[in-house]
Design a protein around this nucleic acid. Sequence first.
DNA 1: TGTCAAATGATAATGATTATCATGACAATG
DNA 2: CATTGTCATGATAATCATTATCATTTGACA
Lengths: 145, 145
Amino acid sequence: MEQRIDRIKKQLHSQSYKLTPQREATVRVLLEHEDDHLSAEDVYMLVKEKYPEIGLATVYRTLELLTELKVVDKINFGDGVSRYDLRQEGADHFHHHLVCLECGAVDEIQEDLLGDVEKIVEKRWNFEIKDHRLTFHGICYRCRT
Amino acid sequence: MEQRIDRIKKQLHSQSYKLTPQREATVRVLLEHEDDHLSAEDVYMLVKEKYPEIGLATVYRTLELLTELKVVDKINFGDGVSRYDLRQEGADHFHHHLVCLECGAVDEIQEDLLGDVEKIVEKRWNFEIKDHRLTFHGICYRCRT
DNA sequence: TGTCAAATGATAATGATTATCATGACAATG
DNA sequence: CATTGTCATGATAATCATTATCATTTGACA
Ligand SMILES: [Mn+2]
Ligand SMILES: [Mn+2]
Ligand SMILES: [Zn+2]
Ligand SMILES: [Zn+2]
């Protein structure tokens, strides 16, 4: 945890950004909810518990900054809000998602299953892949009778 | 074109919806821009050319209805608007997308490349797949020097 | 022709995100 | 130590896509 924050701090410094108390509190919330998919509002509520003076605008700005640095990925599951997903440290691919149509759960697949597919796309479509987004919609293991 | 509209008409009737002139004009616009990814506003502007009295709310309602019927898929590329993508007739999978980070172009891959991956996901994660969304971000063939 | 539910269009309301702006923190400088 | 300048913050207003509301229209059917 502390080491992870330290590395994010260095990443910020390398672009001449500071790790302010507000930013640190926000990062801590994200780390403590690594498996969730929090909206800006969600993050705001959680950060307020440890830093009540923080403003909503600062949370938005911090999330935008972290997205720029690729610390988090900004995603959208079709409800009206953006969600912020901590990227696996050092991972060069964004993980996949399983969205359950029954219960709404969102599970993650950390393993990269797209290696072969990407080779095909690069060759056949002459497209240089930098990133990907893969989501499956269906019925999760819990909801299958 | 006419046959396609006829089949959509039947699909509507089978759920006791009517193909009103407004709905038909909207469907025609979608068919005429099959390869594009139009926002509700885009559709509205285009429909107005052939049906100037139409209201924006009706366009939204029609697009929602067509999404329900799976005639179109509602997608989101991260800019602040939903886009509506005509589904290949009879296709059971939603096509994939290539988004160029350089020029912003969005190309399509109609071929389904996820067959093997889906088998793995169904087995290993015990997840019953109903649909998928796959988007690659990178540099398109036009922008590669 | 009269009836009724569905559909429409104008417009207001909502709600997430972004912009603005005065204030505060803080490092560097003299 | 006082001054200056830059970056960051928080309150709040503005924006803008989407949804809700409601009076009116349409069209099928009795
Ligand atoms: Mn995730
Ligand atoms: Mn498409
Ligand atoms: Zn489930
Ligand atoms: Zn390009």
